[in-house]
Design a protein around this nucleic acid. Structure first.
Length: 252
DNA sequence: AATCCCTACAACCGCCCTTAC
DNA sequence: CGTAAGGGCGGTTGTAGGGAT
C-alpha cells in the first residue's frame, strides 16, 4: 500500500514563492513557531502551499540565520574534507558550517566545487600546457583519456568495488576502455554536464553519470587530501558512515 | 536581434526513518 | 507489534539570466 500524499497536490500552489507568501510564512512562524506540524501549518497560516514546501522554504531561505553564497576558502576546505569522509551526506556537512543549509551546500558542490576539484587535479597532475590543452572538464562529453592520467585502473577498480559503488557503470566503462586502450590508466571524465540540460543532451543513462562522478570525485579527493585514497584507507572506511541501509543488509 | 547553450539555484519528488497511536 | 502520518534527506528538475554564436 502506498503512502497517502501529504497534501492535495492538485489544489496547492507550486513553483516560486512570492514575497507576500514569504512574509505570511515568516510572520506566522515568528509569532507561533512551527507548532511541530508542518502539514497543518499552511492551513493555520492561511497559505495555499504544501506543508513540505513551507518547511523547505523556511529552512532553506527564510530562517534568520541563513547565509547565501559567498563561500569562503575555509568553507570549501571543510566541504571537501567532509565529502571525502562522508560522501553526499549534505545535512551532516551542513551541520559543520554555521548558517549553511544542506541544499545550499549541495548546489554549491554540484555547480562549483566539483569543477574546482577537477581543475585542481588537472593542474597538479598534468605536464601539458593548460593554455594549449583544454582541461579534461572541457573536453567532449564522452569519457576521455589523456597522457596526464593520474589514476590507475587498479585504484579505480578499487573504488568500484568499494562501498561507494551502487552501479556497475563505472566498471563496465573501465572494461570498455581497457579493451581499446594501450595504456592501463584512466584520467578525468567530463563534469561540465552537471546541469539537467546537458545531462539530457548527452543521453547518459539516468542516474549512472552521477554515480560515476561521485566515485570519481572521491578518487580525486583521495589524492588531493593525501591519506584517504590509499588502498589501506579505502579498506578501513567504517561502513556505517558510507553504506546505505540496503547495502549493509546485502553485505551480510 | 534572435537563438542557443550553460550556469546557478530554488523548488519539488520520492523514499526512508521516526514516532505516535 | 503493526500501521499510518509527519519529518528529514538526497536526488532531480525547472527555469531565469547571462554569455556566446
Amino acid at each position: 500500500m502506498g503512502r497517502a500524499p501529504c497534501c492535495d497536490k492538485a489544489n496547492v500552489k507550486r513553483g516560486p514563492w512570492l514575497p507576500e507568501e514569504d512574509a505570511v510564512l515568516r510572520s506566522y512562524i515568528e509569532k507561533h513557531g512551527t507548532g511541530g506540524n508542518w502539514i497543518a501549518l499552511p492551513l493555520k497560516a492561511g497559505l495555499n502551499r504544501c506543508g513540505k514546501s513551507c518547511r523547505l522554504r523556511w529552512l532553506n531561505y527564510l530562517r534568520p540565520d541563513i547565509k547565501h553564497g559567498g563561500f569562503t576558502e575555509e568553507e570549501d576546505n571543510v566541504i571537501f574534507s567532509l565529502y571525502s569522509k562522508l560522501g553526499s551526506r549534505w545535512s551532516i556537512i551542513a551541520s559543520h558550517l554555521r548558517g549553511r543549509t544542506d541544499n545550499d551546500i549541495k548546489n554549491y558542490w554540484n555547480t562549483k566545487l566539483k569543477k574546482k576539484l577537477i581543475m585542481s587535479s588537472y593542474n597538479t597532475t598534468t605536464t601539458m600546457d593548460p593554455s594549449k590543452t583544454p582541461p579534461p572538464a572541457l573536453l567532449p562529453a564522452t569519457a576521455v583519456k589523456s597522457e596526464s592520467s593520474s589514476h590507475t585502473t587498479d585504484s579505480i577498480s578499487k573504488l568500484c568495488s568499494s562501498p561507494f559503488s551502487s552501479s556497475n557503470y563505472f566498471s563496465s566503462l573501465i572494461n570498455d576502455q581497457e579493451g581499446s586502450m594501450s595504456s592501463s590508466t584512466i584520467t578525468a571524465y567530463d563534469v561540465s554536464g552537471s546541469s539537467s540540460n546537458s545531462r539530457r543532451d548527452r543521453n547518459w543513462p539516468a542516474g549512472d553519470e552521477d554515480t560515476l562522478l561521485s566515485e570519481f570525485d572521491l578518487g580525486l579527493l583521495s589524492e588531493m587530501l593525501g591519506d584517504y585514497g590509499s588502498e589501506e584507507m579505502l579498506g578501513e572506511v567504517p561502513p556505517p558512515l558510507l553504506w546505505t541501509a540496503s547495502e549493509l543488509m546485502y553485505s551480510q
